[in-house]
Design a protein around this nucleic acid. Structure first.
Lengths: 262, 262
DNA sequence: GGATGATTTGCCATAATGTGGCAAATTTTT
DNA sequence: AAAAATTTGCCACATTATGGCAAATCATCC
């Protein structure tokens, strides 16, 4: 819980901070000055680190606009984490089924500390959606995360709810969103339910995936146009999601046991 | 081509070396002393870096045996490299088809410098296979890599063939394998063809996936018991693989354009 | 089961490494 | 075509990472 204070590794921490930041704007890319400022580094330091990372293909500097984007080696390193890769693959067919039956977009996310990390996405919709594969969102900031929060022991729930709310408040990109409404509504329903709280025209519904000891380690959600989220549909699709989640918990028990819920 | 000499970033390079090493023994894990020696670092240095990485969940130290294995955050960072993740997902259904029709295991690999990186695997077989998702193998060391080598311009082919052969020779794990036989045979066939050259009872057949300018950026292979690889079967399955590769090239042209072949 | 050997964890003085300031080159905007 | 902004590169300095050493833990063998 409390950090063991890893000492004497400033450069490495900075590197990881830069890599995480790159992930938040992967398609637009980052200009050196911007990402340096964003991460609280001087341009020189960011330059040195980025050049080093580029030489190892962990990042790429796009030739045309000189912006930095995540690089192939980063993806390749990610493949070496076995349980995670296989969990995504194992769940994918289930997501396809849900998408077929509902016509909505389906997400799979993992819990990572006080954030969710979107791990898979299936289907398409007319409305804008915030989430995408690889994106990190504070727990209180998505139906996926709320679904997981709901299943945490009171103590931890309180802590993580507070922490992720704070993260949401401090990030200007999340301004004007009614995350608290989403939380209250979800608390009543017992599942994560966003009705236009994140983006005006969109809605989403999330259910958790629990490990053997009942801890939420992942979540599935559906997302689509808000008008389609009638009370009735929410009930039937909610049940469907729960069934799928239970099935995944059963069939992928071994993989799930290897997922850190930390 | 020639490294631009990234200066003043020893610690970062060391970190990446450690992370790559972790990937080579991900299930067994590494003891601190061993991985330090393997990477040419003192125990203290490795300890400091590993502790730092563990605190950010880039690596995990398994509680029971204290061994280090790749951690969740590494996987999550990998998801932020968009073209790569989607390419794997887009190819997956095609791999399933091939596995269904042939009954063999199917691999998808990307080219990464002078190595292949296995990106997906479908199906199961009775024989042992060397490759697995996330594993890096010198180009000359698999049917996948050879398939790509065959399509490179003479100059580059020569360079990479030599480089990857050298890598194979210097690694004791590759002792006693007849990679040269595989190369000669493949050169004749025009596809990567391993007939027991890597592991005694196994065989595999690889075809390249080319980008718009004809450069090989990825490859597909099938692998199974050696006796099943008759001349006839090799011909028909080879054609099937070529068809699938062409289809992928056509349908995923945009994604492929974003894959670095470097 | 107690003792031996190996591995992990932690500390600390030292200098080598990474740092940030500054300026030239390059690119974009006006 | 000039001006502003950003990237690239260099260099002297001290902060930071380094590796030696020792205590604590863990595994093993007699």
């Amino acid at each position: 819980m409390s950090k063991p204070l890893p000492t004497g590794t400033q450069a490495i921490v900075r590197t990881v901070v830069l890599l995480k930041a790159l992930g938040t704007r992967r398609q637009i890319g980052w200009r050196l000055t911007d990402i340096a400022a964003h991460c609280g580094l001087t341009t020189s330091t960011a330059y040195r680190i980025m050049t080093c990372l580029a030489s190892m293909n962990l990042v790429r500097q796009r030739p045309r606009d000189k912006r930095y984007v995540p690089g192939p080696t980063l993806y390749e390193l990610g493949l070496t984490v076995p349980a995670y890769f296989h969990f995504q693959g194992a769940c994918h067919p289930r997501l396809l089924e849900i998408s077929d039956k509902t016509g909505w977009v389906v997400f799979l996310a993992l819990r990572s500390g006080e954030e969710t990390v979107c791990v898979d996405r299936v289907g398409s919709t007319s409305v804008n959606l915030l989430n995408e594969v690889g994106r990190r969102v504070p727990l209180a900031g998505s139906a996926l995360g709320v679904a997981m929060l709901l299943r945490l022991p009171a103590r931890e729930q309180k802590r993580l709810l507070a922490a992720s709310r704070k993260a949401l408040r401090s990030n200007p990109a999340h301004r004007g969103r009614t995350y608290d409404d989403m939380w209250v509504r979800s608390l009543r329903l017992g599942l994560g339910l966003n009705l236009g709280d994140i983006l005006p025209g969109g809605a989403s519904l999330g259910v958790p995936i629990l490990n053997a000891s009942g801890k939420p380690v992942a979540a599935i959600s559906v997302a689509g146009p808000r008008p389609e989220f009638t009370e009735r549909r929410i009930a039937t699709v909610g049940q469907m999601l729960k069934d799928v989640a239970r099935r995944i918990e059963r069939e992928q028990a071994e993989l799930i046991a290897d997922l850190e819920a930390g």
